[in-house]
């Protein structure tokens, strides 16, 4: 584990991500003000001791809203990744175990899914199925399925060629048992790195959806929605258009650094390409 301490990416990324999770958790029980508490008298206030980041157009405390925003942003992204991995990993593992026609079919289906710009299709799904956090999770999650299917299949095929798999087969183990007992543990590192990357992408996608009004619905605060509201008042309160974006960037940066650091730590053979 000495390598872990040397990796600045891992440290910085881990610290930022932990901070974000902590903020989201704290916001469940405490925020400086109620994140939905309206105070018209003090609307669009500049930062002060009472409101460290100022207030929005309804006089809601910006800091409290940002903290509560972490909650919805992280939970939407987390569930989107769980949906994607939960369906994509078994599909990819199945394709790798079977090979042949099922494998080809799964890979063609993935190619097809990648032809649809993910965010555009998420926009379409949430708009037609009804805006809201749940549909946003599903719409983003659907586009994580082919990502996880493809990476699982690629990594698993590498493992299937190894001698210990042959030994397990010779011992009469079933494909499913080999996949669960031998293949998945060997590709867990790759999947973890990918999950971190997808988590970051999901945060951006969620922010984009709520910016255009299709994600988490008011009064539950979300970073994307806050940016949209701020744009209306950008001449009077420019800072309101800065803070939520900083929060998104910070969260995504932390996860990307964590992903890079994990990749270096868990699998030094894989060159860092992204």
């Amino acid at each position: 584990m000495r390598g872990a301490w040397r990796s600045r990416n891992l440290l910085a990324g881990g610290a930022i991500t932990a901070l974000m999770v902590l903020i989201a958790l704290v916001s469940l029980v405490w925020t400086p003000y109620g994140p939905t508490q309206i105070d018209i008298v003090h609307r669009l206030a500049t930062p002060s001791a009472a409101h460290p980041l100022g207030t929005d157009l309804f006089g809601r405390d910006e800091l409290s809203m940002l903290m509560a925003g972490a909650q919805s942003s992280l939970s939407v992204a987390l569930i989107a990744v769980i949906v994607g991995a939960g369906i994509g990993v078994p599909i990819g593992a199945f394709a790798a175990a079977r090979g042949g026609v099922p494998d080809d079919l799964v890979m063609r289906a993935c190619d097809l899914a990648f032809a649809f710009p993910a965010l555009l299709t998420a926009v379409m799904i949430t708009a037609l199925a009804g805006p809201g956090a749940i549909n946003a999770m599903l719409a983003i999650g659907i586009f994580n399925i082919p990502v996880f299917a493809r990476i699982t299949r690629g990594a698993a095929r590498g493992v299937w060629g190894r001698e210990f798999i042959l030994a397990a087969r010779a011992a009469g183990r079933h494909d499913t048992a080999i996949t669960v007992l031998h293949v998945l543990p060997n590709i867990a590192a790759v999947l973890l790195v990918q999950a971190t990357i997808q988590f970051a992408l999901a945060i951006v996608a969620d922010a984009g959806l709520s910016y255009v009004g299709l994600g988490t619905q008011p009064p539950q605060p979300s970073w994307g929605r806050m940016l949209n509201d701020a744009q209306t008042f950008i001449w009077r309160a420019p800072l309101l258009a800065v803070f939520p974006g900083l929060a998104i960037t910070f969260a995504v940066l932390g996860l990307n650094l964590l992903g890079d650091g994990l990749q270096d730590l868990l699998d030094p053979r894989v060159r860092r390409a992204r």
Binding site: A200, V204, A207, G208, Y211, L227, A230, Q231, I234, A241, P244, G245, I248, T249, F250, V252, L253, N256
Partner: peptide, 9 residues
């Protein structure tokens, strides 16, 4: 890490 719509703003 910067989302393009925020960069636009």
């Amino acid at each position: 890490a910067i989302p393009n719509f925020w960069l636009g703003i």
